[in-house]
Nucleic acid binder design. Sequence first.
DNA 1: GTCGCTCGTTGACCAAAATCAACTCGCGGC
DNA 2: GCCGCGAGTTGATTTTGGTCAACGAGCGAC
Lengths: 251, 251
Amino acid sequence: MQGTEHAIDISELRQSCARCALLNLCLAAPIGAAELRRLDDIVKRRRPLARNEFLFREGSRHSSLYVIRSGAIKTSVLLPEGDCQVLGFHLPGEILGLDGVASERHQLSAEVLEESSVCEIPFDRLGEVAAQLPALQRQIYRIVSREFVREQEHPVMMGRKHAMTRLALFLHGFSERRSAHGLDPCSFELSMSRQDLANYLGLVIETVSRAFSRLQALGVIEVDRRHVIVRDRRALSDFARPDEPELRATA
Amino acid sequence: MQGTEHAIDISELRQSCARCALLNLCLAAPIGAAELRRLDDIVKRRRPLARNEFLFREGSRHSSLYVIRSGAIKTSVLLPEGDCQVLGFHLPGEILGLDGVASERHQLSAEVLEESSVCEIPFDRLGEVAAQLPALQRQIYRIVSREFVREQEHPVMMGRKHAMTRLALFLHGFSERRSAHGLDPCSFELSMSRQDLANYLGLVIETVSRAFSRLQALGVIEVDRRHVIVRDRRALSDFARPDEPELRATA
DNA sequence: GTCGCTCGTTGACCAAAATCAACTCGCGGC
DNA sequence: GCCGCGAGTTGATTTTGGTCAACGAGCGAC
C-alpha cells in the first residue's frame, strides 16, 4: 500500500497550478499564463500528509503559507491549563499559515485529520513575485480578507446559547462548504473526532453526542458514527438560525 | 465645549505619522523618513467621531483601512434573527477594515463607543505605495497577521465554560492592552455597555452583572458602573486561567 | 477468534447560566 | 424639584448543559 501512495504522491507533485482544480479558490486566480508560471516555480507541492501529522506546530519557525489541495486540517492553540482550543477545520482551497507572519513563529498548530496534500508557498519568495505582479498582490489581500471573514463564523457560532443551534450551524456551514467545492452537501464523513468537534463548538463531548442524537430523532439528519446524511436541509438551517427554544420544541 | 473639541480636532489633523505616538504600532513602523512622507500623503486624518457614529456599516462599499488613534470602536455582524454578534472592542493602534477587501463590501459594522479619531488609508493607494516599498509591504502583512492572531482570542475566551472565567479573561486582556499603550492597567472606564459586553462574551447581561459583583465580593476588582479598578491583578489572572470550579470556590 | 483499547452513546444527577421579574440608580427634560 | 427612561443589579425559578458513570460498537494486536 505504501507503493500506491507513493505513486499518487509523484503524480501530484507534477501538477501545475494551471491544472489545479482549486485554481479559482487559491492565490493564482486572476493572473495570466506567464505570471502563473512564475508563481508555479516557487510553489512546493508537498508529499501527502498522513493523519495525525502536523503541518506546523505552535511556536515553530514560520516561513510559508499553505494552500490545502485535498484532505482536512485542524488548527488549534494550546491553553495555559494544558488543554487546547480548536480554532477551525480547514478544507481544500483554504489557506493556512497567516498566523505567524507577525512574530515569525506560528501562533497555532495545524494537525492533519485525514490524508491531505498541500501546496507550500515560501512567504518571502511570494512577496518578491507579488511585488512585480499587482494582480497577485491584490489577490493575496483578497484571500487574506476572505480568511479573516471566515474566522468570524467561529465566534458567531459560539455566541449561540443552545447546543443544538451550534451543531446545526456547524453542520449547515460544513454542508455549504462542501457544495462550494462541488462535493455532495448532504452525505459526508466528518474527519474530526467528537472531542475536537465539541471543543470547537465550546461544548463537552456528551452534549455534542446528545445534539446529534436529537437531530437524528427529529429526522433532520442520519448519523452513523462520523458519517452524516442530511435528510432535511431546510430543517437543519431552521435549527441553525434561532436561539429561541419555542422553535426548537416544534416537530 | 464644542469649541475646544474643534480645536483639538484641527491640531490632530495637522499631525503627521512621524509625530504620531502610535507609530510603532501602525503601518508606518519600519520605514524611513522619506518613505514615511509618501505614506503620510495618502493618510487621511478624519475628524473625531462621536459616540454611536458608525465608522462603517455592514454591506457598505469598502475602500479603506483605518488605524484607531484614540477612543474605542466596537465591531459586530448582523445575524439573520435580527440581533447581532459583537466581535471585538478595538483600541488605539489597532486596524479596522480588513473585512471587506475580499468582497469589496464591509462584512461587519464598526460603531464608535467613545469619541474616537482614526487615520483612514485608502486601500488602493496604499497598494500603490507599498508596491514600491517592500518594507511597507512586509509591515502590512505583519499587521494583518497580528490582527488575525488577535481575533483568535475571542473564540478562546468563548470556549471557556464559566462566566467568571470569561469575564476575568476579558478584564485581564483589556488591562494588558492598556498597559501596552502606556495607560493605567488597573483603573479604567469600560466604554461598552453591559449588553455589548455580554454579547461579546456569549452570555446574557444578568450573568455578566453577577460575575462583576462576584469578582468585587472576592476583592479582585472594584466596580462602579462602567469604572473598574483592579485590586488584585494576580487573582484576576488566576480566575482567567482555569475552568475548574474548585479554584473558583477558593477564597 | 478474543482481548483490550479508544471512541462514542446514553442515563441519572447536579450545578451554572438563562429567564422572568422587581427594583435601584443616575440622568435629562421640563 | 419631579417625572420618566434606560442601564444595571439582584432575587426566584426554570432549563440547559456539565459531570459522573456505565455501557456498547468498532478496531487493531496477537
